[in-house]
Design a protein around this nucleic acid. Structure first.
Lengths: 216, 216
DNA sequence: CGAAGACTTGATGCAGATCAAAATCCGTGG
DNA sequence: CCACGGATTTTGATCTGCATCAAGTCTTCG
């Protein structure tokens, strides 16, 4: 824990922190709501989503164990954050963080790092949404989850097929079909029904995803 | 000019700046190239793009007069920047800017502001690429250009149909058809062939675009 | 004026959406 | 422990919006 906070240049001793549990589906904060806290995932997973009036939804990303989110440089949240499964979050007062960023160069660097990471992710995701076909999108997603949430040989996918679809700009049926195909082709297998995967051919999936690798 | 720099909290007196002209199609910098300068558009327009090995392309955004770009918090550029038309840029040394950001809180705020703006744009563009249909995308694009590059009643579209298409994740034919439809429906008309438009029904286009307005 | 590039318009094809149904998973309570 | 019921996922059939292919027209500029 201390290590995770340390990575972001944030030490717990300066803040009045508390842990809060959210059950599956609980809303951590809503769009346009004022940012009062910054959050770190202690256990579980959270999705960051934008909603359209007619029900369409875009998921901008998933926050997994260790991730810090809800840190905005504007006054209000631009996404809604929802717990995907039973989740424990550590809350930090945004005001306290603001004060430190002003006074401490290290904290400033950390803030810049967090925002830059979001920006790079968003830029790469634009490429996926604008250019890649469905198999490439799902392969990219699997590689992302593989690098972020693998314990042992098992890659954990805590979110539903619908969540994955809304993240990738596809339908849940298309996601399911792509995964079925990867399974048939021996690139992937599942343990524990559909939320725990083992990547069998990392090379092949990476190649498909890195069709999205930069040229020249 | 001074006013534009001022908006970003950057004053010209601290830097050794120079103006450079780029002809249409000239590359300002390439992907993965080290960031040596920060740029401001004095005249013309620039596109920021990522390329895939097979020729697919995603344009992340357009830089118009007054915009600052090329400012990274990492060592290398993540996009290629290309002049869309004859363009004049003002260059600022990245090193000088870095030094100031460390020593001056105001410059720091300015940096944060520039990056936050990019992030918000990227997040909104993900919604467009992930959820919107072709008419909505083109309407959103027209509203964006309307608010960013209108002089008098004329909205200037310096980029080609292909550029617009690669920005919106469509083909140039689809963009052309959407615009033709808007023209037939009296929402839009063109002066000067196809690069200068007049928005006739701002309400209707905004309504179509703001299908992408946040719910709840 | 001529040629190359840019744009429009039309015809056709297809990847992925939509519709539909069956299979599987999982929590709950007997 | 097992049976039940709702939710989730898979799989199949069909449809459609946009891509692709293909002319033809306009624009720009040497």
């Amino acid at each position: 824990m201390q290590r995770l906070l340390g990575q972001a240049g944030i030490s717990s001793k300066w803040f009045n922190m508390e842990h809060i549990d959210y059950c599956k589906g609980a809303i951590v904060f809503r769009q346009a709501q004022p940012c009062e806290y910054v959050y770190q995932v202690i256990a579980g997973a959270v999705r960051a989503q934008k909603l359209l009036p007619d029900g369409r939804r875009q998921i901008a990303g998933f926050h997994l164990v260790g991730d810090i989110f809800g840190l905005e440089t504007v006054a209000t949240h631009r996404f809604e954050a929802v717990a995907i499964v039973q989740t424990t979050l550590r809350l930090m007062s945004r005001r306290a963080l603001d004060d430190r960023v002003v006074s401490e160069p290290t904290a400033f660097r950390a803030l810049l790092g967090v925002i830059t990471k979001s920006l790079i992710h968003a830029e790469n995701h634009m490429l996926l949404l604008g250019c890649q076909d469905s198999d490439e999108r799902v392969a990219t997603f699997l590689m992302e989850m593989h690098s972020r949430s693998t314990s042992g040989r098992v890659t954990h996918l805590p979110m539903s097929r619908r969540d994955i679809a809304d993240y990738l700009g596809l339908t849940l049926e298309t996601v399911s079909r792509a995964m079925a195909k990867f399974r048939r082709d021996g690139l992937l297998k599942f343990v524990d029904a559909q939320r725990r995967a083992v990547i069998l051919d990392r090379q092949a999936l990476a190649a498909m995803a890195d069709e999205a690798r930069l040229a020249s």
